[in-house]
Design a protein around this nucleic acid. Structure first.
Lengths: 236, 236
DNA sequence: CGCTATGTTGATCCATATCAATAAGTGTGG
DNA sequence: CCACACTTATTGATATGGATCAACATAGCG
C-alpha cells in the first residue's frame, strides 16, 4: 500500500471551501487515512458503475470525466486543480455515474469515502459545506442541460469561447484549455462539426490558429451568442 | 396576505425525507411562516431569473419546470406530489434557473427561503437531509445529461417508456403521465418527431392509442432500448 | 356545438453525423 | 536529429436524424 498523505499537500486541500471550516482534529483524521498519488497521463482513475471508494481531489494536472453507453462515449466535464470530483457518489454511497481519467500527469488525493461519510455524519459544519458544494454542482449541470437543449452547436461553441475568454482574463486572445476533439465531445458534437463551427464563427469575429483563439469583434460575437447568467455564469 | 398553513397539511410535508428528522419545534416554526395555496392550471409559480423567495412543496397536482432562451423553451422536468422543487436556488440564495407553472389544479406549500436557510444554519440534521436530497437531484440531472448526449431521440423514448412502465406497476399497458407535446419537449424533440418516434417503435412491440401505451413485446423493446441503471434507475 | 389547442401526416429543409482523404502535429526509437 | 508511426485536425462528399412548414384530423372545453 502507498504511504499516507504528505503534510505539504494539506494546505491545498484545506483551502477548498469544502474543508475550510472543519476542525483541525477532524481534518487531520481525514488526511491520515488518505493518500496522494502521481499519475501519468491517460490513466483510468475511476470506471463508471464501480462503487465509490474514494473521494478524489485533484491537486495538479487535468482529469476528464466521461460517460459511455452502447459503444458511444461522451466527455461530461474536465476537472482542474484544486477541486474534488464525484462527491455525490461518495455521499450517497452509490456507484459512480462517470468515469475519470488523467489527461496530463496529475497529482490526486484519495480520501476514503467511508471516512468522508463518517465525518459528514458527525461534523455538521462539514455537512453544511457539502450542501453548498452540491448545490453548486447541481446548478452547473442544470445549466449544462439548458445549454444542450436550448442551443445549437454553433451557439454552444460561441458561448463556450466567451466563457473561456472570461476565465483567462478577458484578453482578446487566449488558448483553448482542451484538445479540440475533447471540446467537441464536451459540447455535444463531432470533431468535424467543431471544425466547421469554428469557421461558422468567423463572420462573428472569431479567428482560430491551432489552439489559439482570437476574438476580433467581441460585440459581434456577444450579439450572436447571447450569453445569459442563467446558463453561462458558473458563479451563481 | 394569505393565512398560515393548515395543520392538516403538516403530515404530508413532514413525511418528506427532507423534513422527517427535524425537531417538532423547528418544523412548526417553519410551518408557521409558510402558507398553502390552491392554484388553477396554467398558473406561473416561478419565473427563471427571479430571486428564490420560497421553497415550494407540491402537495397535489402537477407542476412543470421549464427553461427558455432566445425565444426557445424546453421542459426540464415535471414534479408530482409530494416533493419539493428548486431547493438548490433556495439554499444558495441564488436566482431560479427554471420557471415553474401548474399543469393541473395544484396545492402548493410555500416556505420562505430565508426561513429554510435559517433552519439550515442551525439544524444540522436538516442540513444533512438537504445533502441527501441534493445529491439525489444532482445525480438525476447527470443521468438526464447522459441520456441526451449518448442516445438518439428514439432511444430516449424507448427508455422513457420502459421507465414509465416500471413506475406504473409493470403492466403491459399504461397511460402516459404527460401531454405528448410536453413529453416531446422533455425528451428534447419536437411533437412531430415524437409522433414519428412512436411509429418507429412499433417494430419493437410498442402500440399507441391516445395516451395509452401497450408494450406487446417487452424483450424486443428492452433489446432495442438497452436501459442501464447508470442512466435509467432513478433510485441510485 | 363550434372554437381552440393538440396530435398526426406529408413534404421539404437544415443541422449534424458519417465516411473518406489529406494534412499537420506529436512522440518514439534509431 | 531525423525518419517513421500514430494521433489529431481539417476538408469535401454524402447520408440521415430531426426540424420546420403546411394541411388536416381530433379531442377537449366553454
Amino acid at each position: 500500500m502507498i504511504a499516507g498523505m504528505p503534510d505539504s499537500d494539506h494546505p491545498d486541500i484545506r483551502g477548498l471551501h469544502l474543508f475550510a471550516q472543519m476542525s483541525d482534529e477532524r481534518f487531520l483524521a481525514l488526511m491520515r487515512g488518505s493518500y496522494v498519488q502521481n499519475f501519468p497521463p491517460q490513466v483510468d482513475l475511476i470506471t463508471e458503475g464501480d462503487p465509490s471508494d474514494f473521494l478524489h481531489v485533484i491537486l495538479s494536472g487535468v482529469v476528464e470525466l466521461t460517460s459511455a453507453w452502447n459503444g458511444r462515449e461522451t466527455t461530461m466535464a474536465t476537472v482542474r486543480p484544486v477541486s474534488t470530483f464525484i462527491l455525490a457518489a461518495t455521499i450517497k454511497d452509490a456507484p459512480y455515474l462517470m468515469s475519470a481519467k488523467t489527461l496530463e500527469r496529475s497529482r490526486i488525493a484519495l480520501i476514503p469515502s467511508q471516512d468522508v461519510r463518517n465525518v459528514f455524519d458527525t461534523d455538521s459544519e462539514f455537512a453544511r459545506a457539502i450542501v453548498t458544494e452540491l448545490a453548486q454542482c447541481y446548478r452547473s449541470v442544470v445549466k449544462a442541460q439548458k445549454d444542450l437543449k436550448l442551443r445549437t452547436s454553433l451557439e454552444r461553441l460561441a458561448n463556450y469561447l466567451l466563457r473561456q475568454q472570461m476565465l483567462t482574463g478577458e484578453g482578446s486572445q487566449f488558448a483553448l484549455q482542451l484538445e479540440k476533439r475533447k471540446l467537441a465531445s464536451f459540447l455535444g458534437m463531432t470533431p468535424e462539426n467543431l471544425s466547421r463551427a469554428f469557421k461558422g464563427l468567423q463572420p462573428y469575429g472569431v479567428a482560430v490558429n491551432g489552439n489559439q483563439i482570437t476574438v476580433t469583434d467581441r460585440d459581434e460575437l456577444l450579439q450572436f451568442a447571447r450569453p445569459t447568467p442563467l446558463i453561462d455564469d458558473f458563479s451563481i
